[in-house]
Amino acid sequence: MPVSRDEFEDLRPLSFREPDEVLDDEKLYTIYEVARLLQGLDPDVELDVETENVLLDWAIPWMMTHTEEFVFAEPAADDEPGYYGLAK
């Protein structure tokens, strides 16, 4: 249900960082690690499933917006995620 703007004291602009501000250009990351890094979290931090799903909801469109800045490496096995990194 929508709420009144007056209920909030702190309204900030929505802004996303550029991929090179988030990722190390010498490393490859899973989508889960990228999602954590976008939120300023350690890429290895343990999260509950619901939180991780919310972070993925932010990370996937962000990556799609910047596809030209990423490279992709196939996963080591079919049951593992792929890896993403910065295009050099």
Rank of each mutant, 00 (worst) to 15 (best):
E7D: 08
V45Q: 15
V45M: 04
V45S: 08
E21M: 15
P2F: 07
E21R: 15
A77K: 15
E26D: 15
V54R: 13
D42S: 12
E18W: 15
E7M: 07
Q39F: 09
E52G: 03
F16W: 09
P43L: 02
P2H: 05
V22G: 14
Q39Y: 14
L11N: 13
E68I: 01
F16Y: 06
E46Y: 12
P19F: 14
Y29S: 09
A73I: 01
Q39K: 14
P61N: 02
T30R: 12
E52C: 01
P13Q: 11
D44G: 15
L47D: 07
E18S: 15
L41T: 02
W62G: 01
L86Y: 01
Y29C: 11
N53T: 11
K88W: 05
V54G: 03
D44N: 12
V71I: 11
G40T: 07
L28V: 09
T30H: 13
E46C: 12
N53W: 02
E69G: 05
L55K: 00
Y83A: 10
A76G: 08
P75N: 06
L47K: 00
L14Q: 10
D79I: 10
T30Q: 06
E7L: 15
K27C: 13
A73F: 02
E9N: 11
G85L: 09
L37E: 14
R5K: 14
A35T: 12
D6P: 00
L11Q: 10
P75W: 00
L86Q: 01
G82D: 07
L28R: 12
E18F: 15
S15Q: 09
A35M: 03
D10W: 13
D6L: 07
A77W: 05
E7R: 09
E50D: 09
L86F: 00
